[in-house]
Design a protein around this nucleic acid. Structure first.
Lengths: 211, 211
DNA sequence: CAGGTTAAATTAATGACGTTCGGTTTCTGG
DNA sequence: CCAGAAACCGAACGTCATTAATTTAACCTG
């Protein structure tokens, strides 16, 4: 019972991430213990330390895997909305809402990641979440090419759109939306539409901000 | 060394909440341990259990205290903006941004509260956060009385405004805003102004949503 | 004012968890 | 076939939240 035979090799990193994600949705973050992950993988807890520096690093890997799936979802939407920048923004936003509502605990982890001292110096470079912002910025730039918000900074517009939708699903996942029992997806879609109206209403008149 | 003399009585609940809040901003959530809180209060760790059911309950008290301060801040703003609904929304939003940026760890706790099984059945009734939403809704209703967004549901508009600003400060506090080194307060104010433009741009034409 | 009950702490103990250590088995390169 | 590296396990350690047993002060009740 030490090193396994080659035929018995297991993909411990992959299984650990998948098991942790499963435990996360089932029992919440505090239910994700090294011992339980190991039991689900079929190894001992110390074996996980051969593949992840510590528990936070494993959770960070789950976090990254979540963003990778989110990016995949958004790329799939983008492929179906070529030539329609506003439609792409709308469908991308709806995919985002669906992802958050389908994976609430994972979404929570993605936006409340464990602090990683090794990356503290430059979180921007190592954060998988920024890839998803890049996709959004490209969609905003496409909308600008179609005549919307011509004078605005695409990064800033993308940030505001992301803020609105992220804020809404965050509040919904904590039962802080009005009428908590009501249909969450419908509310999420309304928020997406309101955010997009910030852009669509701009074609006739310039933005009305004053800062 | 058991029960203290009356002259030595301490306000353990109050001191514990204040100490926990101080530790929270200094060392993060994982630095807030019962032993450290007790040391700061000047008592032993088990003594805290006479005033709080467990650590989560103590953190929930910190969470509630944070919302109480936030509401105080917003009430102070409201007192200075009587008769100017749009100005009240703008200044209220700026006060919100300032609170979040001044108390980042507390803000994080307020919007990622520990799960309380005893209140799981009806979080709406027991959540101090909802009081702050009520203030916002009143401001929206005042704006509607002044002719903005006449046909919209005030709850829904308030939720969207809150979502936008909350989402933006949440992302900023995690270094997920563009240009992370730039002035955060300025970006927060821009977001507030953009959100308010959703309302101000509505007086001429109705909302352009389609859901 | 004596004596018993309650209240509010204390120290000690328990149990779960993350993590490290030492040893054992298997793989790999010569 | 053999040395060394790699991968894993069981046991052990330290920290932390929480509970148990105990002590002392305050509060009645006569």
């Amino acid at each position: 019972m030490a090193r396994p035979r080659k035929q018995d090799e297991k993909d411990i990193p992959g299984l650990a991430i998948a098991s942790a994600r499963c435990l996360l949705e089932k029992d919440g973050l505090s239910g994700v213990t090294m011992a339980r992950i190991a039991a689900a993988v079929g190894c001992s807890a110390p074996a996980l330390y051969g593949h992840f520096r510590n528990r936070d690093a494993l959770l960070r890997a789950v976090h990254d895997a979540g963003f990778e799936q989110l990016v995949r979802d958004k790329v799939a939407v983008a492929a179906q909305t070529a030539g329609d920048p506003i439609g792409r923004l709308r469908e991308g936003g709806r995919a985002y809402v669906a992802f958050a509502l389908d994976n609430p605990a994972l979404y929570h982890l993605m936006f409340n990641p464990p602090p990683l001292p090794e990356f503290a110096g430059n979180p921007f470079e190592h954060d998988a979440g920024m890839a998803s912002l890049l996709l959004l910025r490209r969609a905003v730039e496409a909308a600008q090419a179609a005549g919307y918000l011509p004078a605005e900074d695409a990064d800033r517009v993308a940030f505001i759109l992301w803020s609105t939708v992220h804020g809404a699903v965050s509040l919904m996942l904590q039962n802080r939306a009005p009428h908590p029992a009501a249909d969450r997806q419908a509310l999420g879609w309304q928020v997406v539409d309101s955010a997009i109206s910030l852009i669509t209403s701009s074609r006739a008149s310039g933005p009305s901000r004053d800062a």
